[in-house]
Computed example of a mutant assay.
Amino acid sequence: MAFLKGRIRFAKRYANLKEIAVAAAKTFVSEVRKQIYPGPEHCYNMHEGEYDKLVSL
């Protein structure tokens, strides 16, 4: 979805979603570059030996 520069007459603005989306994207990029995200709480790990089973298929 593209953000419109002008206002649409038949639509009411409840929030400035462009500002929210841009701020969220900047925060995401910053955390990835600083290696804050993803953290261990955002990841899943394989049990010992599962990777070897997977590659042997």
Rank of each mutant, 00 (worst) to 15 (best):
residue 13 R to F: 11
residue 13 R to V: 14
residue 13 R to Y: 10
residue 13 R to I: 15
residue 13 R to Q: 14
residue 14 Y to K: 13
residue 15 A to H: 09
residue 15 A to D: 06
residue 15 A to E: 14
residue 16 N to S: 15
residue 18 K to L: 11
residue 18 K to Y: 14
residue 19 E to H: 13
residue 19 E to C: 15
residue 19 E to K: 15
residue 20 I to F: 02
residue 20 I to R: 04
residue 20 I to Y: 00
residue 21 A to T: 14
residue 21 A to S: 13
residue 21 A to E: 12
residue 21 A to M: 12
residue 22 V to A: 13
residue 22 V to L: 14
residue 23 A to V: 09
residue 23 A to I: 05
residue 23 A to N: 15
residue 24 A to E: 15
residue 24 A to C: 11
residue 24 A to S: 15
residue 24 A to W: 12
residue 25 A to V: 14
residue 25 A to D: 11
residue 25 A to T: 12
residue 26 K to W: 05
residue 27 T to F: 00
residue 27 T to V: 07
residue 27 T to M: 02
residue 27 T to L: 04
residue 28 F to V: 11
residue 28 F to N: 06
residue 28 F to A: 15
residue 28 F to E: 14
residue 29 V to R: 07
residue 29 V to E: 04
residue 30 S to W: 03
residue 30 S to R: 10
residue 30 S to G: 05
residue 31 E to F: 02
residue 31 E to Q: 07
residue 32 V to R: 08
residue 32 V to I: 14
residue 32 V to F: 09
residue 33 R to P: 01
residue 33 R to M: 03
residue 34 K to G: 07
residue 34 K to D: 12
residue 34 K to T: 06
residue 35 Q to M: 06
residue 35 Q to S: 09
residue 35 Q to P: 00
residue 35 Q to E: 11
residue 35 Q to H: 07
residue 36 I to D: 02
residue 36 I to S: 05
residue 37 Y to L: 06
residue 37 Y to Q: 01
residue 37 Y to I: 01
residue 37 Y to G: 00
residue 37 Y to W: 08
residue 37 Y to S: 00
residue 38 P to N: 01
residue 38 P to E: 01
residue 39 G to E: 03
residue 39 G to W: 00
residue 39 G to T: 05
residue 40 P to Q: 10
residue 40 P to L: 11
residue 40 P to T: 08
residue 41 E to H: 09
residue 41 E to G: 03
residue 41 E to A: 03
residue 42 H to R: 05
residue 42 H to Q: 05
residue 42 H to W: 00
residue 43 C to A: 08
residue 43 C to K: 06
residue 44 Y to K: 08
residue 44 Y to N: 04
residue 44 Y to H: 08
residue 45 N to T: 04
residue 45 N to K: 03
residue 45 N to L: 00
residue 45 N to C: 04
residue 45 N to R: 01
residue 46 M to N: 06
residue 46 M to P: 13
residue 47 H to I: 06
residue 47 H to G: 07
residue 47 H to R: 10
residue 47 H to V: 12
